[in-house]
Amino acid sequence: MIRHALRRRVLGLAAAFATVLALLTVPAAPASAGECYQPYCGGVVYNANGNAPVDIANCWFNDLSWSYADYNLPKPCMENGWTTGNKNAAWWLNRGETSANYYYFYDVDAFRVRPGCILDMNTGFGTTRWDRRGLGPLWVRIGSSARYTVTYHQCF
């Protein structure tokens, strides 16, 4: 009887965990920086320990994919290039910088792993490593309320 109750409790906890995990991985539509008027109102990237800048974008080009392998994101995203002064743009964060320091980047939609680099990103649920040694760049989409921290970033 005790064994059955324990098994039922473990299965219940596993189902609850799976549900939470599924909700966290559902793609969120990119938010417009014009709708995000204060720091930390959207996705945030913090370069805590990167030995190289981390590229970020305040836009995403479609609602279907989670990553894009190229130097720039397709238009309409990044139609304004590399600037902190506009939406549909990209920028970079040096060590110790956060996207919450830049008005148009209060809500970040993607970060880029540069070619030849290793980047470790803590998502609050663990750390993920992207290894692009011998590979081209990779843009990675993030959720609209995500808090990502770069814990390691080295380019070779």
Rank of each mutant, 00 (worst) to 15 (best):
M1G: 15
I2Y: 08
R3I: 13
R3T: 12
R3S: 13
R3E: 15
H4I: 09
A5Q: 09
A5D: 07
L6Q: 09
R7A: 11
R8P: 01
L11S: 00
L11P: 01
G12R: 13
L13D: 03
A14R: 04
A16C: 11
F17N: 01
F17P: 04
F17D: 01
A18F: 03
T19E: 05
V20K: 05
L21N: 02
L24Q: 11
L24C: 08
L24R: 10
T25R: 08
V26P: 00
P27V: 02
P27R: 10
A28K: 04
A29W: 01
A29Y: 02
P30E: 06
P30A: 13
A31L: 11
A31C: 01
A33E: 01
G34T: 01
E35A: 11
C36Q: 04
C36T: 03
C36Y: 03
Y37F: 09
Y37Q: 12
Y37R: 14
P39Q: 10
P39E: 09
Y40A: 07
Y40Q: 06
G43R: 04
V45Q: 00
V45I: 15
N51L: 12
N51P: 01
A52L: 06
V54A: 06
I56L: 06
A57N: 02
N58Y: 03
N58K: 00
N58Q: 03
C59A: 02
W60D: 04
N62F: 05
L64K: 05
W66P: 01
W66R: 05
S67F: 12
S67E: 10
D70W: 08
D70V: 06
Y71A: 09
Y71I: 05
N72T: 13
P74I: 02
P74N: 05
C77Y: 03
M78K: 04
E79S: 07
G81T: 03
W82I: 13
W82E: 11
T84C: 03
G85P: 00
N86E: 07
K87I: 07
A89C: 02
W91D: 06
W91L: 01
W91Q: 05
W92S: 14
L93T: 06
L93I: 09
R95F: 06
G96K: 13
E97R: 12
E97C: 07
E97K: 12
T98S: 15
S99G: 11
S99V: 05
A100K: 07
A100L: 08
A100E: 14
N101V: 00
Y103F: 15
Y104K: 03
Y106P: 06
Y106R: 08
D107Y: 05
V108I: 10
V108G: 07
D109Y: 04
A110S: 13
F111H: 05
V113R: 06
V113Y: 02
P115D: 14
P115Y: 12
C117F: 10
I118F: 09
I118T: 15
I118M: 14
N122I: 11
N122M: 13
N122A: 15
T123Q: 09
G124E: 13
G126L: 13
R129G: 12
W130T: 12
D131I: 14
G136V: 08
L138C: 09
L138H: 04
W139K: 08
V140A: 10
R141A: 09
I142Q: 15
I142D: 01
G143M: 13
S144L: 08
S144Y: 10
S145N: 15
S145H: 15
T149H: 12
T149D: 10
T151Y: 11
H153Q: 14
Q154D: 13
C155R: 12
